[in-house]
């Protein structure tokens, strides 16, 4: 089956892409650039770099801008999906939805109305299981931004076994989801085994974003050969 993957450049959509590559024919990625940082649907703090990630993956990217207004952003998502359907003759959409029925049911409804299959290979996966799977699949991701108490020092750090060990005691202490499903943090993928090239951050700084939030502001990002 020919598919398109909804791709934000974070760990979940990259792992979903990994599944999609193993079980379908991925024709393109779809990225949604939301102007609303508090969008219920799209969490894309590093969307400007998605084009470079798509280049690394060697896949065409359909990038759709949206103002991120609740429900209206769904029309923009549908427009992007229909564009992918027309251009690449896709038969299904793959998402990195994990537990949010709000997000997944809306994407399911869009796919249903567009007569496309909808695949959610991470659906209901345990959060620590997901973090471990990222290690097993050798997906290299870093923390691109934190938005919850107790995670301040994780910005820019790699999601690896050390991260998993360090976040475990914080899960109960601060009632956070270890994989960031509640919006506690955002991730950014630099490399994966199926990437033909990889990303290297050449210049970055940590920016305070208020209310304890911190964002990794990437100033210079380079695509390099592997």
């Amino acid at each position: 089956m020919k598919t398109a993957v909804l791709f934000s450049g974070g760990k979940d959509s990259t792992l979903a892409l990994d599944y999609a590559l193993r079980y379908s024919k991925v024709k393109c990625l779809i990225g949604i650039a939301s102007e609303n940082p508090e969008s219920f649907m799209f969490h894309t703090p590093s969307i400007e770099f998605v084009e470079k990630q798509a280049e690394c993956a060697g896949l065409p990217l359909i990038l759709q801008k949206t103002k991120g207004v609740k429900e209206k952003e769904l029309k923009d998502l549908k427009a992007a999906i229909l564009k992918a359907k027309k251009k690449f003759k896709i038969e299904g959409i793959v998402t990195g939805a994990l537990a949010s029925t709000y997000q997944s049911s809306r994407i399911q409804a869009i796919c249903n109305s567009a007569n496309l299959e909808c695949f959610n290979p991470l659906w209901q996966k345990g959060q620590f299981e997901l973090l471990e799977e990222l290690q097993n699949r050798k997906i290299i991701a870093i923390i691109g931004g934190v938005f919850a108490q107790g995670l301040e020092n994780f910005v820019g750090k790699r999601i690896d076994q050390k991260f998993i060990a360090e976040i475990k005691p914080l899960v109960e202490k601060y009632s956070i989801n270890p994989a960031g499903e509640g919006g506690e943090f955002e991730s950014f993928v630099l490399d994966a085994p199926f990437f033909k090239k990889k990303l290297v951050i050449e210049d970055c700084r940590i920016v305070e974003a208020g209310h304890g939030s911190r964002i990794l502001k990437i100033e210079k990002l380079k695509v390099v050969k592997k």
């Binding site: 599944y19 379908s24 695949f119 290979p121 209901q124």
Partner: peptide, 15 residues
């Protein structure tokens, strides 16, 4: 009928 759907509809039941 699609192998990729196993992860969404069967694996959570197994879990």
């Amino acid at each position: 009928s699609e192998e990729l759907h196993y992860f969404e509809f069967v694996k959570p039941v197994e879990e």
